[in-house]
Every structure is written in C-alpha cells, then in structure tokens.
Simulated assay, not measured.
Amino acid sequence: MAAPARRLCHIAFHVPEGQPLARDLHRLFGFQPVAVREAGGWRQLALRSGDAVFLVNEGAGPREPLYGLDPHHSVSSAANLCFDVDDAGAAARALAARGCRVPVPPVRVRDAQGAASYAVVSSPAGNLSLTLLERAGYRGPFLPGFRPVPSEPGPGWVSHVDHLTLACTPGSSPALTRWFHDCLGFQHLPLSPGEDPELGLRVVAGSGRGGLRLTALQAGPDNAVPTLVLAESLPGTTSRQDQVEQFLARHQGPGLQHVGLYTPNIIAAAQGMVVAGGRLLTPPEAYYQQPGKEKQILAAGHKPSLLARQGILLDGDKEKFLLQVFTKSLFAEDTFFLELIQRQGATGFGQDNIRALWQSVQEEAARTQET
C-alpha cells in the first residue's frame, strides 16, 4: 500500500455561499461549531459531534480552500475525506508514483498551537478527493489556520462515524476496491460467508426488480478509519430508479452518498432531531407489516409502534440487531443524506433492511395504483 490511512480526521463539504448546510448540521443534527477560517473568498467552519467532524467549505475563492480542493462540481456535495497519515509528503510521493493525480502537493501550515502538513489526492470515485494529513502534536481545537469558536456542549446524539457509502456506476466496484487497497491499505470486509471480493454482496430485491451490489472495505487493524461501503445498482426490469441511480443522476456522477453516524441511543437521537426540525425518512407501513417483523423488534427489546412512528428500521436475529434511520437529503438536489445507526451486536449494514424496504416500497406503489 502507498499511504495507509490511520484515522478519519474529517469529512469536507463544498457548498455555495448562503447554503444552509452548516446551520442545519448545528440546529437540526446536534453538531457544534469548533473552529472557523475566513480567507480568500472561503468561509470554512468545522463542526463536531463526538468524534465525527464535518468541515463545511462555503463560497468559491480564487485559491483552493485550506486542507482541501475545490472540485468545481455543479451541485453541493460531500467532496473530500481527510485521513491522518504518518508522513504526508512521503504518502503524496508514493501515490504520485502509482499514477495518482496530486492536485495539491504537500503544504505545511503553522500557527501558535503547532503545525500540520497535508496533500490532496484525486480519487477515482467521481468528485471525491482525499486529503492526507500529518498533524502529530498539534494542540489546537481543529487544525492550524483556524480560530476556535466558543460553543455550548452538544446533545451527544452521535459518537463517531460508523461508515461511509459511495454510490458507484455499475461495474466499477472491483476497480475501486483495488484502488483503495493499493493506495490506502483498505481490505475487503465480507458481508456474507464466502463472499467473492470481486462480486461483493448481491442484495436482490425480487424477480426482475434489480437490487444493489455492496462491497465493504476496512482499514488495517488498530486504525480508527470507518468502514467504506461501495454501492452500485444491479440490472432490473423496473422503470423506477433505485437510490443509487437517483444519486448518480442528481449528483451528476458517483460520489459520497451518505455518512453513517453511530448513536448509542437511536430512539433518543431520532426524537431529538425531529423535535429540532430535522426531517427523517418514513418507511412505508408495509415494512413493519412483514411476517415476523413485530416479533423481531420485540426480541431486540423495542416497541414496534415506537420504531414505526419514528421510521427506525431493525435488522438481525437472535441477539444481534442493527437499528437504522435515514434523514432526508441535506441538499436541494436530493443527493447526500445522513444515517443514524445503532448496533446491538450486529456488524453488517442492514442487508435485509435494503431488500425489505425495496420490496415494501414496490408493494405500496402497487396498492396506490390499484386505488
């Protein structure tokens, strides 16, 4: 591997001036401002919830924003993943030697709290770039060049980033898997026994209705890097676009579709976000009416009516369960969204939820047409 990732530092967004993303992350989803930088036509605000950090780059300056790259993308998006590495300069040289494009060569930034070095590499996943950051010993609240922002303690709904999901074009997952393996040291994480890393996990929604191919990747042991999930559509006969196809069309190419945020109490987090004005997706009633779903929810120690009212999905069996709920898109283009996830012993990503949701949406649409 050329530049093994050690830790996810932050996820950066690029939005035009006046876009309400930073305000919404704070007011609706419990992220607290920690540091800001205003220079060169950019306003860069870092917000934190637990160990999850989002950097909102707002504006469009003549130079690149600090610690990132302006992708000049036509729609707002989550455009950059920043990873801690041992040596940013060596990592950039190693990736360049592998043929990777390094649009921002190594830069060193210093302030009164210390120094950091970084470089930005283009990824093969649409407009997504990767920042390789070396910041050992930095003592400030975020990174050199930012000033701290006083804020009150947050609600604590989110503790860390659980996973990152890329929406990919059909057939691109094997090449992306190899790139993340060779360049950043990610390894295939089987989601089912005996899974072929070239094929991933096929989540088939039903006869002729397509489905998804999921390929999970994880960094090496002892690294604080979230799981990376590649999602691409399977061919089907239905004329309805699935979630990945919709993202590709509205985002105008592949990219970071959603971030899974871990919460120790999904019921409290979902309720708090709704009270604050956050919009969560509500699954069709058919999801909760599946045979055995009520029994499954009770076995996990939850009330079916409460989960249904909050739109929380539950997957798993025996003593291992996974709870999920999704926000509506954070952008007008209906692209990027957030996922809240709570694990009760489960390690997957709700494969049965994907299948069941797909089928229940189709059944609900059919009933609507009949009436």
Rank of each mutant, 00 (worst) to 15 (best):
P16R: 12
P16L: 10
P16T: 10
E17Y: 07
E17N: 12
E17D: 14
E17L: 14
E17F: 10
G18E: 10
G18S: 08
G18P: 10
Q19H: 15
Q19T: 12
Q19F: 13
Q19A: 15
P20R: 06
L21A: 09
L21C: 11
L21S: 11
L21R: 12
L21V: 10
L21D: 11
A22P: 12
R23V: 13
R23E: 15
D24N: 15
D24I: 10
D24E: 15
D24H: 14
D24C: 11
L25W: 06
L25Y: 06
L25Q: 08
L25H: 06
L25C: 06
H26E: 15
H26S: 15
H26K: 13
H26Q: 15
H26M: 12
H26R: 15
R27F: 07
R27M: 12
L28E: 00
L28F: 07
L28R: 06
L28T: 01
F29M: 04
F29G: 00
F29H: 02
F29Y: 15
G30N: 03
G30Y: 02
G30W: 03
F31M: 01
F31L: 04
F31Q: 01
Q32H: 02
Q32F: 00
Q32T: 15
Q32I: 13
Q32L: 12
Q32P: 04
P33D: 06
P33C: 01
P33E: 02
P33V: 03
V34M: 08
V34D: 01
A35W: 01
A35Y: 04
A35K: 01
A35T: 10
A35I: 07
A35M: 04
V36E: 13
V36R: 13
V36Y: 00
V36L: 10
R37V: 08
R37E: 12
R37W: 07
E38W: 00
E38T: 14
E38A: 14
A39W: 09
A39C: 07
A39N: 09
A39H: 13
G40A: 11
G40R: 10
G40V: 11
G40T: 10
G40N: 11
G40W: 09
G40F: 08
G40H: 09
G41Q: 07
G41C: 09
G41D: 08
G41A: 07
W42T: 04
W42I: 09
W42H: 07
W42G: 05
W42Y: 11
W42L: 09
W42E: 04
R43G: 03
R43K: 14
Q44H: 00
Q44D: 08
Q44Y: 01
Q44P: 04
Q44C: 11
Q44G: 02
L45P: 05
L45I: 11
L45D: 02
L45K: 02
A46T: 07
A46K: 06
R48T: 01
R48M: 00
R48G: 00
R48P: 02
S49I: 00
S49R: 01
S49Q: 10
S49D: 08
G50Q: 07
D51L: 07
D51H: 09
D51E: 14
D51Y: 00
D51C: 01
D51T: 08
A52H: 02
A52L: 05
A52M: 05
A52N: 05
A52W: 06
A52K: 04
V53N: 00
V53G: 02
V53L: 00
F54E: 11
F54Q: 10
F54Y: 15
F54G: 03
F54L: 14
